[in-house]
Design a binder for these strands. Structure first.
Lengths: 232, 232
DNA sequence: GTCATCATGTAAGCCGTTACATGATTGC
DNA sequence: GCAATCATGTAACGGCTTACATGATGAC
């Protein structure tokens, strides 16, 4: 999961660990405050597996990056001001760049099945945040996989709500959870509809153009998903 | 977290590990499919710390428990049918019973602060499911702590939604997450209102009657909560 | 020169998972 | 007898956390 997030950020632009953390917090929202004790080992693993390389370690002026990137907005200005007048001050930082293998891994992770143990909502949210890098058909598959997941949850939740005699609080919890899931499904339906309309005018058969990540598309039934129904 | 759930179930009735798992799955919904590799060690820990004791190990007819409990409904009937005509068949099962210390621990866990690393939604859901065992004031504190948590999240989410230039999918994700949080807050407000109305006619000062779990009530501001904004 | 922030890393621990091992009971 | 289910447990691992250690840079 973390590795997917890291690769997703590096997919667009090279950066160092400390900034990856900041972007994860400020932009993605998921991984609210990923700890360094988790981030740096993850980067080391990715480096060892040749998914990323270190392009700049000790100092030297950044080759073509203006301040710290294009996505930071005002924050980039802040940093530029902080580092005085010059644009590339020598630092003890390791700037990472994604490799070809890294891109392949990214698209494989993004399009593949959700790893069993993970928090479903988080996992899906992360994937959706990078869904623009997916082929249209894989994107649709992602949305529909999630939809199926939620409808299954709805079914079991309704059984729970009707069958057992629950106290006020548990009942309220289950009912609110059910509503939230229904709301989620409605949202997904809107996204799915939008996707279909985007694809419809383009061509008639299933899109299989440039991108990867289109493995697994019919096996959405086989997922063993350990779906918790955490509400609120 | 798991220990809280276990103690919560044992609080009401003694049972063995395998059934704890079933109840966790079928009734609570949280901990959808807790694994035995997690459950049994947890029971061992609780036993070592004297929070629970084993009351029945090898066989013998259960002292006063009809089939498997009062909360199981039709499932109890199923089990009774399965075990033939007799009511207490000898099995290799360990029936656990909560101790005085266990009850104290339960109420302490239930009323205390959320442990930092945990999934907030899950943690809150679990606590709410056992909220009937809390003193009214502690219950209110739980709800308001959660509310504060969510309003903080709303604030950061709104900043994210307005500031950065996000792609369609991420934007939709953030917006939907914001809506979901607002929905959650509205729900909490209803619960809080209901609590207030239940307490108002009863007495005027802060209820401090029989139950425990009313420590921590003013320090809701100090929580460092690592709140993720997982949507959908 | 000292403090805040930036920046990287290691170690220990918590909480959960899957996979494996074992055995009792019951239905057929 | 054999398979399914009930029932308990261990081992290895995954992914994340906090706490700790270290050092460079820039603001004041």
């Amino acid at each position: 999961m973390l590795e997917l997030a890291i690769l997703g950020l590096l997919f667009e632009q090279e950066m160092h660990g400390y900034e990856i953390r900041r972007r994860l917090r400020d932009e993605l929202g998921l991984f609210a405050n990923i700890s360094f004790g988790s981030l740096y080992p993850a980067l080391s693993r990715l480096e060892r597996s040749l998914a990323v390389t270190v392009v700049e370690s000790g100092g030297s002026v950044p080759t073509s990056i203006p301040a710290t990137g294009s996505l930071s907005g005002e924050r980039a200005g802040l940093r530029a001001r902080r580092s005085g007048a010059a644009l590339g001050t020598k630092r003890s930082r390791k700037v990472y760049r994604i490799t070809e293998q890294g891109r392949a891994l990214f698209e494989q992770l993004l399009g593949g099945e959700e790893p069993a143990g993970a928090d479903d909502a988080r996992s899906f949210g992360l994937r959706l945040a990078f869904a623009r890098h997916l082929a249209p058909s894989a994107r649709l598959a992602l949305l529909e996989r999630r939809r199926l997941q939620l409808t299954r949850r709805l079914a079991t939740d309704r059984v729970r709500a009707s069958g057992e005699r629950l106290d006020v609080y548990t009942r309220s919890l289950v009912e609110h959870g059910t509503e939230a899931t229904e709301h989620d499904i409605a949202w997904l339906d809107r996204l799915i509809e939008a996707e279909r309309q985007k694809q419809a005018p383009a061509r008639s058969d299933t899109a299989r153009t440039t991108d990867l990540g289109d493995s697994h598309s019919g096996d959405a039934m086989t997922s063993t998903s350990t779906t918790p129904s955490g509400a609120a």
